[in-house]
Computed example of a mutant assay.
Amino acid sequence: MKEYNITVIATNNPKIIKLEANHFLVKGNYEYKNIDEAKNSPLAQQLFYLPFIKTVYIASNFVALERYDIVTWEDVKADVAQQLVEYLNAGEPVVNEEDVQKKQPVTVYAEVTPNPSVMKFVCNKRIVPSTYEFKNIDEAKDAPLAKELFHLPFVKEVFMDENYVSVTKYDVADWDEINMQLREFIRDFLADGKDVVTAEALQKKEESKQQEKVNLSYDDTSQQIIDILEEYVKPAVASDGGNIQFQSYEEESGTVSVILQGACSGCPSSTFTLKNGIETMLKNMMGDKIREVVALNG
């Protein structure tokens, strides 16, 4: 029998913690808002008996928990982690995946983005735990949804984050002609309960993040830039179907390099946003340390 260990990982949201196991827990992604929704997950049902648990999300090798405001994670996270370890090491089931209904109610709607070549398709459920970008079908070998989208002749690039998919089209097609087809395609794929990305892809992503933490040691200025981007810029960029990542900071020239992804990549208005939004904000908040912000398309 496998022996499970749990690592508690903080997230950008103070109400949510991530409990990461050293072995895979499930093949799919599961989110539960209450104990009634968790009929197919004995683990989630047990967690909901804790009065401060608001949402349970289970995927790959981790369980993410959202709390109510009646407690802080600092007070209870050790007890919750221990309870999870004991549950898993007792051999109790996490999710009875064979009991999951094949067809799941899914809503998908389209949002126009500032980039005329990109449409954002928003789902009523979380579909991936972090960002994924695919420039071609070869890059999407571990992402079944993106791989199938690339079989459509007008799909150029696919970007996914949290609860949405941003699709970049070739100029040969107009959105009026393909919008409905894409929306229904994504909705049917999700309703069939198919994996958006494979368990292997989730594992690779997590390993990459951990390796990045080991390899990268940012100076104080770079870390301050990253914190500003995370808090003030990323949420706004995500609402437009894109993403921004810190690349580097050159102290001598005062130049900040960032990577633009999704709808932001190649967007005609990205230069304006970069100069009049991000660059101005960093200059105002960090003074003479920042002279210029330059962008690289992801």
Rank of each mutant, 00 (worst) to 15 (best):
F189V: 04
Y232V: 01
Q82E: 08
F154H: 13
A110W: 05
V94T: 03
P51S: 11
I178V: 15
L282C: 07
N136K: 13
L25W: 00
E3D: 09
F159R: 08
M285C: 01
K156H: 15
G91P: 05
E66P: 03
G193F: 04
G241P: 05
V233K: 03
I70A: 11
V158Y: 09
A238L: 05
N61D: 12
Q247A: 11
Q247P: 02
I6V: 06
K275C: 07
G298H: 05
D79N: 06
L88D: 05
K204F: 11
V155W: 07
E252T: 09
N12G: 14
Q181G: 04
Y164F: 15
A21V: 00
D227V: 11
K125S: 10
K156A: 08
Y249M: 09
D220W: 09
Y232T: 02
E148H: 13
Q210I: 09
E251V: 08
G241H: 02
L260Q: 01
Y57S: 00
E292K: 15
P268Q: 03
D161T: 08
V94Q: 02
I228D: 07
E3N: 10
E97L: 13
E139N: 10
T7S: 07
F121D: 02
V94E: 01
I127M: 01
F246N: 05
T131G: 08
G287E: 03
T55V: 14
P105W: 01
G193A: 06
V80H: 01
N215P: 02
N29A: 10
V196G: 05
K194V: 13
E37V: 03
A38N: 01
V85Q: 13
P42W: 00
Q261C: 06
P51D: 12
M1A: 13
L65E: 03
K103Y: 12
Y32V: 00
T273G: 15
A78H: 08
G28E: 02
N13Y: 09
E31L: 07
D227A: 13
Y249F: 14
K120D: 06
E98M: 01
N5V: 08
I6A: 03
V214G: 00
A146W: 13
L190S: 07
I35H: 00
D36Q: 12
E162I: 06
F24L: 10
K33N: 04
K147Y: 12
G298N: 08
Y132W: 03
D288W: 09
